[in-house]
Structure formats: structure tokens, C-alpha cells
Design a protein around this nucleic acid. Structure first.
Length: 300
RNA sequence: GGUUCCUUGGCCGAGUGGUUAGGCACCGGUCUGCAAAACCGUCUACAGCAGUUCGAAUCUGCUAGGAACCU
């Protein structure tokens, strides 16, 4: 049976190393589900696989986009599925690995078809938000899509804005596009979660940030500073430097502290998301034997 | 030894008699197209003891710790 092995877990838990060994053992390629490693030029800060690692196993969605390109989970679903389909023609296994919750979700469960919002509508809604504030957008949503109005987190301007944008774009309520059903995939999905005791995970994250600094994260961030307004750089490890150069952070020591802290926050959010998914089988990354056995014991 | 001042929850920090200031961290949570994003919740402290008062973090005294200055 064609099987997609989904290797997921919080940042810094040790997915990359394991994914390569696993892929080699299974004769599989690796499809990255990482919304930041997909960009070129921020390899250090995103802990992207090294050239050596990339040479060991074919990788997809690593460094495939420029910092100025916009990308989304919805687009990823389409692109990733296409790649996965192609890979299954040559192997029974494909390893999907990464920490971008929504990207993984998009591949495993699918997202509803929501049209891309035109620049005009986006600009219009953004303008309303800027000039009249969130309250006005909330009122608009109440009018345009009372159903969704009752469900969204009204304090979260991103979500309110998006819902309003889509309503205006399609001329009907956003909620009419939401099916709340999982898409069926023509392959089996096996989710393997990687986690460590919290103190251990945080210690690794802290150490990894120190290594990034030693590897030249500051220089890398400085190099991409001109592109800071792109979504690709609304990223932990970069925005903290931008704030420093913009005079919003007092010292470099503080920058490093913030990067560590924000990375830990990110890990926590990932775990919160993954913990809801009861189909995940969890392992400690060091327990590779158990993981291998688990995969070996999967029914044909 | 003397004088004056200080002591608030993990950290910062407001509050001079009468709801649990607030911020950050920690912890927990939300999540269908910018998701390494955006957002939400919880955490009831006032150095200790005694007293004044209907009522004290806020007033008084003593004790402890700290700071500055004097001898």
C-alpha cells in the first residue's frame, strides 16, 4: 500500500536527522512541510537541511521560493499532492516532514477551495482596517456572513479580515465554502509524532539558537533585511534582528534571548495543535528502533 | 555605633485606608489560504510579627534583609 509517513513535531525536536535516515531505509524521498525552509536565503535561521543532507536524500520544497514570493497552505496542498503522487510512482513510501501545522493538515485532510482574494479587495479591506479599525470589519462580517461571525475569533483581525475579503470576493458568505469534511487521499497516511520532555526540548531549542548565531545568523538576517516586509521574513530568528536594527530592541543579547523565547513559544503552539490529533503515534526521537519497528509492523 | 531611605506574585512595575493595576515570563488553549502568522485564557502578591481601625499593601511599633550618608 502506498504510504505517506508523516514525521512531525515541534521545532528543534530532531525531525531532520531522523527523516533522512528513515527515508534512506524506506527508499523514499522527503517532502518538506515547512513554510519557511521553502524560501532561499534564510537557511541558517530556519535550520534548513544542509547541502550534505540534501544530497543524501531527494528533498522537495526546500529553498524553492524567493523571499518575495507569497505562498500559502492552500497552494502547498496542490503542489505537494502533485509531487507526492509522482513519487509514489517510484516508491511505496514518501516521507513528509516538517512542523508547519497547517501545511501538514492541508496535505492530510485537505482544505476547501477558497478563491485567491484579488489585490483590489485585499487593499480595500486592509484600508478599512487601517482607517476604521477592527470593529468596523466585525460589523461587516456580521452582515456578510452571520454564520461565520458567530464562529470566528473576533479579536483576531487576521481571521476577520480574511473572512470579509472572501465574502466580498465571491459575493456570498465565506462559510458557504466550508465543507467541514476531510478529503480522501489515494494513499495511506501514517503520522509519527516526535516529542521530548519539555525541559529537554527547550534546552535543545536554546542550544540550537546559539549554534545559529555562531553559524552567522546575524549576517544572514542582515543580508535579507531589505526584504523584511515580505511574509517570508515574518519569521522567528529574523524579525527579532529587524527590530534591533530598527531600534526597538536594546541589545544583541536581548535579540538572542527573544529568538530563543519565540522559538519556545512556537514549539508550544505546535504541540497544542498536534495534541488534538489523536491519529498521531508519539515517540522520543532517540527511540529510533521503536519507530522503525512501528513502520515495519504496519499492515500491508 | 548614628541618621535617612528601601523591601509588592518567577521578573519588571503602579498603587499612601475600602473591587483582583498593568506588562513580561511560565502554564493552558484557538486555528480551513500571510500559519515560524494572528489571537485568547489562567496565574489574587504586597519581607515577618504585633498593634490602630468596621476595614491596611497603604497608618504605628518591633524584627530581618538591603542602600546611602555620618562617626
Amino acid at each position: 500500500m502506498k504510504t505517506l509517513i508523516v514525521l512531525l513535531g515541534p521545532t528543534g525536536v530532531g525531525k531532520t536527522d531522523l527523516s533522512i535516515r528513515l527515508a534512506q531505509r524506506l527508499g523514499a524521498s522527503i517532502v518538506s512541510a515547512d513554510s519557511r525552509q521553502l524560501y532561499q536565503g534564510i537557511e541558517i535561521g530556519t535550520a534548513a537541511p544542509t547541502a550534505q543532507q540534501l544530497a543524501a536524500v531527494p528533498h522537495y520544497f526546500i529553498g524553492t521560493h524567493t523571499l518575495e514570493q507569497t505562498y500559502s497552505a492552500g497552494q502547498y496542498e496542490l503542489d505537494a499532492l502533485q509531487v507526492i503522487d509522482k513519487l509514489f510512482a517510484q516508491s511505496n513510501y514518501v516521507v513528509l516532514t516538517g512542523g508547519s501545522m497547517m501545511y501538514i493538515d492541508a496535505v492530510c485532510n485537505g482544505m476547501d477551495d477558497i478563491p485567491t482574494v484579488s489585490d483590489e479587495v485585499r487593499a480595500k479591506v486592509h484600508h478599512i482596517y487601517q482607517t476604521q479599525g477592527l470593529a468596523t470589519l466585525q460589523e461587516m462580517l456580521k452582515e456578510l456572513d452571520p454564520n461565520h461571525y458567530n464562529k470566528v475569533d473576533l479579536c483576531n483581525y487576521r481571521r476577520v479580515m480574511h473572512a470579509v475579503e472572501v465574502c466580498l470576493e465571491i459575493g456570498k458568505p465565506y462559510s458557504t465554502l466550508l465543507s467541514h469534511t476531510k478529503k480522501e487521499r489515494p494513499f495511506r497516511i501514517v503520522k509519527i509524532g516526535l516529542n521530548r520532555p519539555r525541559p529537554e526540548l527547550y534546552e535543545r531549542i536554546n542550544q540550537r539558537v546559539d549554534i545559529m548565531i555562531a553559524d552567522g545568523l546575524e549576517e544572514e538576517a542582515h543580508r535579507v533585511y531589505p526584504y523584511k516586509h515580505n511574509n517570508s521574513l515574518n519569521t522567528v530568528g529574523f524579525k527579532e534582528w529587524f527590530d534591533f536594527w530598527d531600534g526597538k530592541t536594546e541589545s544583541k543579547e536581548r535579540v538572542v534571548e527573544l529568538i530563543k523565547q519565540n522559538s519556545r513559544h512556537y514549539a508550544k503552539r505546535q504541540l497544542t495543535w498536534f495534541n488534538r490529533d489523536t491519529t498521531i503515534t508519539w515517540f522520543h526521537p532517540a527511540d529510533e528502533a521503536a519507530i522503525t519497528a512501528f513502520i515495519g509492523n504496519l499492515p500491508e
